[in-house]
Nucleic acid binder design. Sequence first.
DNA 1: TAGATTGTTAATCGATTAACAATC
DNA 2: TAGATTGTTAATCGATTAACAATC
Lengths: 221, 221
Amino acid sequence: MTARTSTESARDIPEATVARLPVYLRALTALSEAGTGTCSSEALAAAAGVNSAKLRKDLSYLGSYGTRGVGYDVDYLRYQIAREIGVTQDWPVVIVGIGNLGHALANYSGFRSRGFRTVALLDADPARHGEMVAGIEVQPFSDLESIVAEHGVAIGVIATPAVAAQAVADRMVACGITSILNFAAGVLSVPAGVDVRKVDLSVELQVLAYHEQRKAQGELA
Amino acid sequence: MTARTSTESARDIPEATVARLPVYLRALTALSEAGTGTCSSEALAAAAGVNSAKLRKDLSYLGSYGTRGVGYDVDYLRYQIAREIGVTQDWPVVIVGIGNLGHALANYSGFRSRGFRTVALLDADPARHGEMVAGIEVQPFSDLESIVAEHGVAIGVIATPAVAAQAVADRMVACGITSILNFAAGVLSVPAGVDVRKVDLSVELQVLAYHEQRKAQGELA
DNA sequence: TAGATTGTTAATCGATTAACAATC
DNA sequence: TAGATTGTTAATCGATTAACAATC
């Protein structure tokens, strides 16, 4: 219903495309760092691990940032994709649950380098409070509300045991977090308007096992 | 071309269904542990976070394991799905790259409890060799071939820095590993017949950022 | 038998792909 | 102009959903 000016992003980018934009962004960053100024859809698609028809279709949802007969300016396209995703701005993030996985996430350089800034590490276990992880002090989970308010946190990461995850999500939602990355097992229930993405390590292995089993069956035939 | 007996699994389960079977399996395990003997597709779908039409459609690819008017026997369906996925058998796994993430993976109980047995932790850094992680000694990466041969490893996990990932994958493929779970950034190139699944933490956060940005734009309107 | 619930059908929806006109 | 490559179209493919006949 709202009119959009030409500088605004196009609407309704398909989810499958949204999930690939970060992959293109990473490929463009690698090309840029290798000193490549221009690339074709064929070359970028190869670097991103997709076919070029899909890449061009995906990019067409963002606009026309290439030049026919020439290709794409690497840095220009990189900026346009980064802007579309929203990683040209800084996203403060809180991580809850500083066990093995929480440690790994706090130390993961891929977050910081892509516009995500970990503003707090929270854990319910008093024994962990005060510990320094990746240069940040682990604080009590009860500090969640004040930290979210202070830093304007919109994105929360849950790396707690499964039993605690729903309660953590509830508290996050109550204090204004609207995007959650969940590493805990099980299904989170959240209100409409809150996005949850789930990373389930055992699901990934099980999908591999399924295909592996099929390969083994084929060998018997 | 090969005839299949009635005890064999049906062919060609859609990928989207395969990816949900582990989720159903987990929900059934939770129901079973809660003492539930029978459940409807509605109840199981709720526990798994999908709608019941999708659940029934998914299960229909496996066979007819329910009873009309009654529902599903929780333990029976659980076994059938576990068998279909292949997690009724034991899968030896090697993890390469024992940094923060490798530590977290080695300690992740969700693998062991689902039929995945970590038989070795490998790292190229001699300073890490001999370290005990999750009760397993970290060994040199050069031991890969002998370990894979000895244990019949078919599944490898890559948790190395991005620059090392392709070389690790090449070595894995060369010694017979045909399924790879890759946590390293970037695209892996592997021959046909080798399955790679990629878990990319920063991609997940970027997808959330995209939607978060959209919500913020909406508020301005 | 009446009520409940599965398994399947058919319609819809979204994603992928190949082909090529547009155009640098 | 000739060659190269994008952006878009249209066809195909796969996934989702609602509805309901089958049947316990």
